[in-house]
Amino acid sequence: MRHHHRLTPLLYLLPNLTGFAIFVLIPVAAALVLSFFRWDLFHPPKFVGLDNFIDLLGWRRDAEGVIHLNDAGFWKYLYNTLYLMLAIPITMFCSLVLAVLLNQKLPGRMFFRSVFFLPNICAGVGLLLLWKFLYNNDFGLINHMLAWVGITGPDWLNSYNWSKPALMIIMIWGSMGGTGMILYLAGLQGIPPELYEAAEIDGANVLHRFRHITIPMLAPTTFFIFITAVIGGFQGGFDMAYILTKGGPDGATTTLSYYIYNHAFEYFNMGYAAALSLVLFALVLFVTMLSWRFGRGATE
């Protein structure tokens, strides 16, 4: 349309861009400024230069040459965040298998698609409370059922070693039938059937065809799902840990976003929390740029 006044586009963009300026652009700049201050909201902010970042990322060596991290918690929670992300490849594999099963032209497949999608629909605090109940050591169904087959289950959510796998199980259960599966299904439907027919004539069996046709043809889909999940993974874990474990036991399930929440809204270290959030932002940016770099190679 070339028949509009010069300022017309502005009117359409104004509501959205104003909101973005106030709630995204300016806050990002403000977070940057805030990260150079020490501020508890109640006293005047104090400029501290790069101290927040040094306290966060730095280390020192003592007389014996042993390295002491300034904030051992940060590294531990970064490790936790990465550990929980191990659920991503497992989830994606399950999504792919489910998509392949649903791609068979069988009656009832739409019904199963909806059933697999159900945990996604129900996601939220209610579902997390349900899992807290299921994992409960005294009244929980999971250990109850394990006992039937003679296994004494761990006290999942109160165990340093089992709490992370417990959360990963929820993540896998909750998202294997979700967005990833839907996108894989769409991807599968885009593979030309002639490819399979040609391979069959050449004597390729089901597994061969899966490995040499399905997986390469789905590479762009896999790449997209993976990158999206990793970017989400760096920022995730708060709701689940807050409801099920309060980040415990002994910080075993505290993720970066939980740590930021604690600093900002429990201890009111606004400057330190802002610095933390910028480090998280840098990690996300790094992954995004890696994905641009390698994404071109994978899809073109």
Partner: peptide, 12 residues
């Protein structure tokens, strides 16, 4: 690309 936790603190 901006994580929610980045804007959360200044918006609060």
């Amino acid at each position: 690309m901006v994580p929610d936790v980045v804007t959360m603190i200044p918006v609060f």
